[in-house]
Design a protein around this nucleic acid. Structure first.
Length: 384
DNA sequence: AGAGGATCCAGCGCGTATGA
DNA sequence: TCATACGCGCTGGATCCTCT
């Protein structure tokens, strides 16, 4: 069976997996939104940023810290990162507490941290991606755990200490095709929600001149502003600024799934313009990319990919009961499905970069420039 | 009045905090 | 470990509003 578009796939999922829900299409759409997030997460990992990520972090607005926003993915300065072997994890579930109990080294690394007890790997072999295990409020640091390998004999975990404040964030959006609609989505509020967050979290703020040119106003510690053309300001921050200038600077990246309905002839919808003008980078996850992911890993998986399908179906294909928990999300995922995804992205990264993503802004830049900017920021000497 | 765009909101999913 | 309450936010259809 061939699926020509994600809209068709959404309908297939609605009929097959989401039959029991009140609104099949809506439920399928919601699940596809989760898949966009998963694709984004495994792309970030494949870009060698896996040690720097947080998921669903509450981020305060710049200069207005009483207002916070949950951001999907934050990329943070990493000031420490080390793998540790846990010889006897003492059966599942593997928790933050058990890490400390079984490794003196980890206890030492985390001695200044308040422990956050989370399950890194549950009895059912569901793992928590980028599991938060500690917080140091005074020094604005987070401790995270990433499960590297697991067997009944032991586990290897990576412990990373990150600065609380990210230097980049990713937000994902999906807008499906409305039944009977000839035009694109008119869900401006979604675009505005994303735009609001993108415009309120960084110390480098976007302002406009009377002729519509965009300038960056950088709030300096001494209370003054440094104003220059936005692109120039952004480049300076990423490539030349010392870390002391980067306090509260955040590069914003939006990922929107595209179904060819964001344009009317050559004119981008207002929704798209809002997003484009708000994020530093706006990428389309293509119809083909999302459809390929769902087809190859969920609808018609090869035997080696079946654990992804299993995790997806176990999460959705029956009425939701209090017992059932989703095992296919960016945060909680079946360990085997995670391993499949890591492998899939590693093998197909070139194709994913070139065929799954289109760049909307900045124009005329390849996706490698984004990767390069993120890595440049990650490699600055943050601890100085 | 009706077309089409803007806004609202139901239903659902998810993460966290809390407390037993 | 489990249950529950709560806050937040996503999707897509329903409804409201504006313009002609």
């Amino acid at each position: 069976m061939s699926y020509s578009s994600i809209d068709k796939i959404q309908k297939v999922l609605a009929q097959s997996v989401f039959q029991h829900t009140l609104d099949k299409k809506k439920a399928a759409g919601r699940a596809l939104g989760t898949i966009v997030e998963i694709i984004t997460y495994y792309l970030i990992r494949q870009w060698n940023l896996s040690s720097d990520v947080t998921i669903e972090l509450r981020l305060p607005e710049f200069g207005q810290t009483q207002i916070t926003h949950n951001v999907e993915f934050g990329i943070h300065p990493c000031i420490y990162c080390q793998e540790y072997e846990i010889i006897n994890p003492n059966i599942l579930p593997l928790t933050s507490k058990k890490l400390l109990k079984n490794s003196r080294d980890i206890s030492e690394v985390l001695q200044d941290f308040d422990l956050i007890d989370n399950q890194i790997l549950s009895r059912e072999l569901l793992q928590k991606n980028r599991c938060l295990i500690g917080r140091n409020i005074n020094e604005n640091k987070l401790a995270l755990c990433d499960l590297k390998s697991y067997s009944e004999q032991g586990a290897v975990v990576e412990i990373a200490i990150l600065k609380l404040h990210p230097f980049a964030i990713f937000e994902c959006k999906r807008v499906g095709i409305e039944e009977g609609a000839k035009k694109g989505p008119t869900t401006i509020e979604k675009a505005k929600q994303g735009a609001y967050v993108a415009k309120h979290i960084s110390s480098l703020q976007k302002i406009r001149s009377v002729d519509g040119k965009v300038f960056g106003a950088l709030a300096k510690p001494d209370g003054n502003f440094e104003i220059q053309p936005y692109e120039k300001a952004l480049n300076q921050m990423i490539y030349h600024a010392p870390v002391t200038d980067l306090t509260n600077f955040i590069l914003t990246i939006g990922i929107a799934s595209n179904h060819g309905n964001w344009f009317t002839s050559d004119n981008p919808n207002k929704e798209l313009l809002v997003l484009k003008n708000s994020y530093d980078w706006l990428l389309f996850l293509t119809d083909e990319g999302l459809a390929k992911f769902v087809k190859e890993l969920i609808l018609e998986p090869l035997p080696k990919f079946e654990s992804v399908q299993k995790a997806f179906l176990a999460s959705y294909d029956s009425p939701r009961s209090s017992k059932r928990i989703n095992q296919f999300t960016k945060v909680r995922i079946l360990r085997d499905a995670h391993l499949v995804l890591v492998n899939y992205f590693s093998k197909n990264i070139r194709q994913i970069e070139s065929e799954w993503f289109n760049l909307l802004s900045p124009q005329n830049q390849p996706i490698i420039t984004l990767q390069n900017q993120l890595q440049t920021l990650a490699q600055k000497e943050w601890y100085l």
